[in-house]
C-alpha cells in the first residue's frame, strides 16, 4: 500500500517537473528523464505528423525520428524557446522533407470514391451543420477524404495550410521554421486556400450527384 502511494507520488513529482528541469537531468546523464519528456510531448507530435500523413506507420516513424533527433541535438537546445516549440520545429522540418521526398508534385483528385466516402460527401451536402460536426469524428471516411483533399496540394502548400490552420502559427513563425521569406509563406497560404477550396467544391459536387 505504502509502495503504491510512494510510486504515485514519484509519478506525480515527475510529471510536475518542468521541461527545463528534465532536460538538465538528461544532459546530466539521466537518459531516463528523456522518456518522461517524450511521453509528455508525444500526443501533440504524433497528431502533427498525422496531419501530413494518413498512413499511421509513417506518422509514428516520423514522430519517433523527431524524438531521436531532439535527443541527439539536446545540447544545442536553448531555453529561450519552450522545448515543445523547439521539438515541433524539428518535427515540422522532418515532415516537410518526407512530403517532398514522397511527392514532388501535387496529385490529381481521382473521382473514383468508395461507397462510404460518397456517403460522407452526400452527408456533408445534405445534413445540418450540427450533424456534420457530430458525425465527422467517428467516421474514418471523413478523415480519409480530408487526407485525399490535402494530398492534392503541393508539399509546401500543405505545410503552410497545416501550420497556419491546425497549429495556428503566425506567418513569421512559419517563415522562421522553414527558412522561407514571409512573402513566400503568404503566397503559398493564399494558393493553398484557393486550390483546396476548388477541390472541395468538386467533392461537394460529387456528393450532390449521387
Amino acid at each position: 500500500m505504502l509502495g503504491l502511494a510512494a510510486s504515485r507520488k514519484i509519478a506525480w513529482s515527475l510529471t510536475a517537473k518542468p521541461d527545463e528541469e528534465l532536460i538538465a537531468e538528461v544532459l546530466g546523464g539521466d537518459s531516463a528523464a528523456f522518456n518522461e519528456l517524450s511521453s509528455r510531448h508525444r500526443p501533440r507530435v504524433e497528431r502533427l505528423c498525422q496531419r501530413f500523413f494518413s498512413d499511421p506507420e509513417i506518422a509514428r516513424d516520423l514522430a519517433q525520428e523527431g524524438f531521436i533527433r531532439a535527443y541527439t541535438a539536446l545540447r544545442t537546445y536553448r531555453a529561450e524557446m519552450p522545448f515543445g516549440g523547439w521539438l515541433r520545429s524539428i518535427v515540422i522540418n522532418l515532415c516537410y522533407d518526407e512530403l517532398r521526398r514522397r511527392k514532388r508534385r501535387p496529385e490529381e483528385l481521382v473521382g473514383d470514391f468508395g461507397a462510404p466516402e460518397v456517403q460522407w460527401m452526400h452527408l456533408v451536402n445534405e445534413a445540418s451543420p450540427e450533424n456534420i460536426v457530430g458525425d465527422a469524428e467517428e467516421r474514418q471516411e471523413a478523415h480519409d477524404l480530408a487526407h485525399r483533399l490535402l494530398d492534392t496540394l503541393r508539399p509546401e502548400d500543405r505545410m503552410v495550410m497545416v501550420l497556419k490552420e491546425s497549429e495556428e502559427m503566425s506567418v513569421a513563425e512559419i517563415a522562421s521554421i522553414l527558412g522561407w521569406s514571409e512573402a513566400k509563406v503568404k503566397i503559398r497560404a493564399f494558393r493553398a486556400r484557393q486550390a483546396l477550396r476548388k477541390q472541395a467544391e468538386r467533392m461537394l459536387a460529387v456528393g450532390r450527384r449521387r
Binding site: V124, E137, R139, A146, S166, R197, A200
Partner: peptide
Amino acid sequence: FRVFALSAPVLHSAVEP
C-alpha cells in the same frame, strides 16, 4: 461551412480515429 467540413477532419479535429 460545408466546404470547410471536408478538410476539417484533418486540419481541425483534435484526434484521428
